[in-house]
């Protein structure tokens, strides 16, 4: 890519990343949440790959890494749901942590944790889809 794209990417990508994390962490207070924030974070990664490019080997390593992250995030999500089952309530997805005060960042029990797991999952999944398509295109050249 041209140096204009590279410079702008370098300036912007950190901000996009932080904004994604903000959306995920405030998912239980404001509109947004895991999916929206995860999509923004995936956007930051995709921008980096588009601007700087990468050789095949690195792309494949990245794809393996992000698909591992994806599986781990889903397993973490399931684990949180199953833990509720064993905490005596026998109810999946029971909100077993203290709820806190409405409007605080640390409140609403387990919901922020679910949001974080969903955010990682969505970011990893979108990035994996993008990388899979790119790798396929590079291979068929």
């Amino acid at each position: 890519m041209t140096s204009i794209v590279k410079t702008v990417t370098r300036l912007v990508v950190g901000v996009i990343f932080i904004y994604g994390i903000y959306i995920i962490l405030h998912g239980h207070l404001t509109p947004g949440g895991g999916f929206a924030g995860g999509a923004i974070i995936a956007g930051a990664f995709i921008l980096l790959v588009l601007a700087y490019g990468s050789d095949m080997l690195k792309l494949k390593a990245k794809e393996a890494g992000s698909s591992v992250m994806e599986s781990l995030a889903i397993l973490a999500f399931l684990l949180m749901a199953v833990v509720a089952f064993f905490l005596g309530t026998k109810v999946f997805f029971h909100n077993y942590l203290p709820k806190g005060i409405i409007g605080d960042l640390i409140s609403a029990g387990v919901i922020p944790l679910y949001n974080i797991a969903v955010g990682i999952e969505v970011a990893a999944a979108l990035f994996t889809i993008f990388l899979a398509l790119v790798i396929f295109k590079e291979e068929s050249k």
Binding site: S71, L75, V91
Partner: peptide
């Protein structure tokens, strides 16, 4: 009836353990 969600949870857990393990 509290075992009903097992029908979704176990196949899903297996599905995402497979790529890791």
């Amino acid at each position: 009836e509290s075992f009903l969600p097992l029908y979704m949870v176990t196949p899903l857990a297996a599905a995402f353990l497979i790529p890791l393990v």
